[in-house]
Simulated assay, not measured.
Amino acid sequence: MVTLWKKYPYGVCLICLLVCAVLLRVLLLLLGWPSLDSDEAVIYLMASHILDKGEHPIFFYGQYYMGSFEAYFGALLFRLFGSSVLIIRLGMVSLFLGFELAPIS
């Protein structure tokens, strides 16, 4: 660890900050904070429609400038873990982490 710190001090700090951010977000989600908002409800509805009815939306329901990738990802998570608001939110946390780690590689 000492050689990693000396060789890549900014990288080690970045990883520590990302781990702390993800752990804090997961802890807050497990405590039920924040409450469900309309965008998450639409993603939940879209994921349910994708999984149960076989729909294939291209755009976010009601907003024809946003994509539906998160709903497809949510449908996959629903298939693996069952449907709940927590699963949708954990999917968003994993997308956040992927977005933050993408420039590193």
Results as ranks from 00 to 15, higher is better:
1 M>D: 07
1 M>A: 11
1 M>K: 07
2 V>F: 04
2 V>M: 06
3 T>Y: 14
4 L>P: 01
4 L>F: 01
5 W>L: 09
5 W>R: 14
6 K>T: 03
7 K>G: 02
14 L>A: 03
14 L>M: 05
16 C>F: 00
17 L>G: 03
17 L>R: 01
18 L>Q: 01
18 L>T: 02
19 V>Q: 04
20 C>M: 08
20 C>Q: 10
20 C>N: 06
22 V>A: 13
23 L>C: 13
23 L>K: 13
23 L>Q: 14
24 L>T: 10
24 L>M: 09
24 L>C: 06
26 V>R: 05
28 L>C: 09
28 L>R: 07
29 L>S: 04
31 L>H: 08
36 L>T: 12
36 L>M: 13
37 D>A: 06
38 S>P: 00
38 S>W: 07
39 D>A: 12
39 D>E: 09
40 E>M: 04
40 E>V: 03
40 E>G: 07
41 A>T: 06
43 I>P: 04
44 Y>G: 00
47 A>D: 11
48 S>K: 12
48 S>D: 12
49 H>P: 00
50 I>T: 10
51 L>R: 13
52 D>Y: 07
54 G>C: 06
54 G>N: 06
56 H>S: 15
56 H>T: 14
56 H>L: 12
57 P>T: 08
57 P>Q: 05
57 P>K: 08
59 F>R: 00
60 F>K: 03
60 F>I: 04
60 F>W: 06
61 Y>S: 11
61 Y>E: 11
62 G>H: 06
63 Q>G: 00
68 S>L: 03
70 E>P: 00
71 A>K: 07
71 A>R: 02
72 Y>S: 13
73 F>E: 07
73 F>Y: 15
74 G>I: 03
75 A>S: 14
76 L>Q: 11
76 L>A: 14
76 L>E: 13
76 L>P: 02
76 L>Y: 14
77 L>H: 04
78 F>E: 03
78 F>S: 06
79 R>V: 02
80 L>R: 09
81 F>G: 01
84 S>P: 03
84 S>H: 04
85 V>M: 15
86 L>V: 10
87 I>R: 02
87 I>P: 04
89 R>V: 12
89 R>Y: 09
89 R>K: 15
90 L>M: 10
91 G>T: 10
92 M>E: 15
92 M>Q: 15
93 V>I: 15
93 V>K: 05
93 V>F: 05
96 F>W: 15
97 L>Q: 00
97 L>N: 02
98 G>W: 07
98 G>A: 11
98 G>Y: 14
99 F>V: 10
99 F>Q: 13
100 E>K: 04
100 E>P: 02
101 L>P: 05
102 A>H: 15
102 A>K: 15
103 P>E: 02
105 S>G: 08
105 S>F: 05
